[in-house]
Design a protein around this nucleic acid. Sequence first.
DNA 1: TCGATATTTCGACATATATCGAAATATATG
DNA 2: CATATATTTCGATATATGTCGAAATATCGA
Lengths: 110, 110
Amino acid sequence: MSKYRDDQIKQFAEIFKALSNPNRLRMFLHLVTCCVPGTVGSFDAKDGVSACVGDLGRDLDIVPSTVSHHIKELHRAGLIRMERRGQKIECWVDPVILRGLARFFDEPLT
Amino acid sequence: MSKYRDDQIKQFAEIFKALSNPNRLRMFLHLVTCCVPGTVGSFDAKDGVSACVGDLGRDLDIVPSTVSHHIKELHRAGLIRMERRGQKIECWVDPVILRGLARFFDEPLT
DNA sequence: TCGATATTTCGACATATATCGAAATATATG
DNA sequence: CATATATTTCGATATATGTCGAAATATCGA
């Protein structure tokens, strides 16, 4: 019936769960609107196009430990990638996942 | 920062919450893959391209009352539309919402 | 090494969710 | 009307989630 396997459906459900919290969705949008490398998979291009945990929590009125928890959820769902840079931990959206999501909703329309 | 207003973000979060349950996601995919009218908004085209509550619960191993609950969630989120036809209640995906979701993930990539 | 900054871990708690079964409601048909 | 089919409502329950605050860990700079 569906073009997706059962494990893929579960994975998409996990992704949507990660985006189902308004604060987490705001963090994701923060990253997606300012941080996705133009060149998919290009690692060097990441410089200056990611945000650290503190940045993501700013303007959100939640305590750092909660921000950390949310970021862990986004990461667990596979939506974002993370890497330590000195004191800070930088995050950026995984371009492959983003493309998968675009296809998920675009294909039934085409 | 984000191109979306606060109430739009909350609405998208509601939509993703509705899609965060595997069974609900399967129902949505069932509808989306066999039931979206080719002509957006065309009401007559809906004939034969929707599914009733019983259809959506089949192959899902959940009891009818649970199916009903899930459908109510999909409807509350604005993802599907419903209409009584005799004994059955037919459901189909709202094409406008589907397009909005496609744009949500597609725009940051373009 | 000490203090400042950034982040995570842990435990707690209130709220939300998924699911069931039983009973109620709506519709069609004999 | 009586019965069958389709769906919803309701109450219960077990589990998950969002958030906080306190304490722990990691890194940098003086």
